[in-house]
């Protein structure tokens, strides 16, 4: 791999580290960045320091899990976005392209509207319903798009769009019938890390870490699949098997991300895309860069979401989407590389 790649890799890592530091020391509470730094250092090197216990709790039980959760979700969404862009041979593909977000939103709204209480592994019912909803949509999309034992990318994409619309209608109906919970449902669909916890970190990390590891073994095959299914097959890729495997892994990763954070758009679409413009189409490089930059980006946007209107939080999905619109127009104007 070229020298340019290592330079990019180093920049990405610097960006990631700075984002994490920013996420940990910047916030709406009265803790100064200096104090936050002291708390972190004292924890790492177990030196006792003189700060209020409440401040220490904020850092260790709120900001730290929240930052880590943002990193996990950012890494998960970007790696899946990259995978889907290669499978679908479509630069505009993102982790939600097969209807996953609508499935999650529908699941969450059912749980919210029915006021179901309880939970599992420290995850709330809303999170678990969102997880199940998005998984269900992926698998139904996979099943209905199977033609003659193979899954044409366009058919899978369109099944996802159709299912997505269906479930969005379902969610709208729930909101229409149940006005009281409308605000909560809408808030959920905008995406936020406000309810981050160590349990959510553990839950999402399990899926995202294993998923990323498995996807990593397919990055060269993704290069071949970009050329078209027939070419990939002639070059020794078991296209249909690999496609199904990758969609299943990606669905699990996306579902885990969505269930803990709500629907955060733009990250999975644009991070791989920007990096592709800079480093070229090779998925082997893009994969690592996407994970690092995606994680850092999610962390920095979450910090902005907490900081801009402090003490009020803006849902992070709004911030990412605000950046997404202009970038989309830019893409449309400059769409060459992939075609």
């Amino acid at each position: 791999m070229g020298k340019k790649f290592y330079v990019l890799l180093i920049y990405s890592i610097i960006f990631l580290v700075l984002s994490v530091i920013a996420g940990l020391i910047i916030g709406s509470s009265s803790i100064t960045p200096l104090e936050a730094t002291e708390i972190l250092i004292s924890r790492i090197f177990s030196v006792p320091i003189d700060v209020p216990a409440s401040h220490e709790t904020i850092i260790m039980n709120l900001r730290l899990p929240r930052t880590i959760l943002a990193l996990i979700v950012g890494a998960g969404l970007s790696s899946v976005g990259l995978t889907y862009q290669s499978i679908f041979k479509n630069p505009l593909a993102d982790p939600y392209i097969i209807g996953v977000s609508s499935g999650a939103a529908f699941g969450a709204s059912v749980a919210i509207a029915l006021n179901i209480t309880g939970g599992l592994w420290g995850m709330g019912v809303v999170n678990l319903f969102a997880f199940m909803g998005s998984l269900l949509v992926s698998f139904i999309a996979l099943i209905i798009s199977r033609v003659n034992g193979r899954i044409p990318p366009t058919t899978l994409l369109l099944s996802g769009v159709a299912l997505g619309n269906l479930l969005t209608a379902g969610m709208s109906l729930i909101m229409f019938l149940d006005n009281e919970d409308m605000e909560q449902i809408i808030y959920w669909t905008m995406g936020s890390f406000v309810s981050a916890s160590w349990d959510k970190v553990a839950f999402s990390l399990a899926f995202v870490a294993i998923g990323i590891l498995l996807l990593m073994f397919h990055t060269w095959e993704l290069n071949l699949m970009l050329l078209g299914d027939e070419s990939a097959s002639s070059l020794g890729v078991d296209v249909e098997k690999v496609k199904i495997r990758l969609v299943i892994i990606s669905s699990l990763v996306t579902a885990a991300c969505v269930s803990v954070s709500g629907i955060i758009g733009f990250v999975g679409l644009v991070i791989p895309h920007i990096l592709r413009m800079i480093s070229g189409p090779d998925n082997r490089r893009l994969f690592f860069l996407s994970i690092i930059v995606g994680a850092g980006f999610m962390c920095i946007t979450d910090t902005l979401a907490r900081y801009i209107l402090r003490p009020v939080e803006i849902p992070v999905g709004i911030i990412t989407a605000l950046m997404g619109g202009p970038f989309f127009i830019y893409l449309l104007k400059k769409n060459k590389g992939m075609n």
Partner: peptide, 27 residues
């Protein structure tokens, strides 16, 4: 193949190297 000209931005050399795929490892 007939539809084989979907090049995704790879160089000529990279494109031909893909022909080595059946002999290369997973990466």
């Amino acid at each position: 193949p007939q539809d084989g000209v979907n090049s995704a931005g790879f160089s000529v050399f990279e494109m031909v190297m893909m022909g080595r795929s059946p002999y290369l490892n997973f990466f």
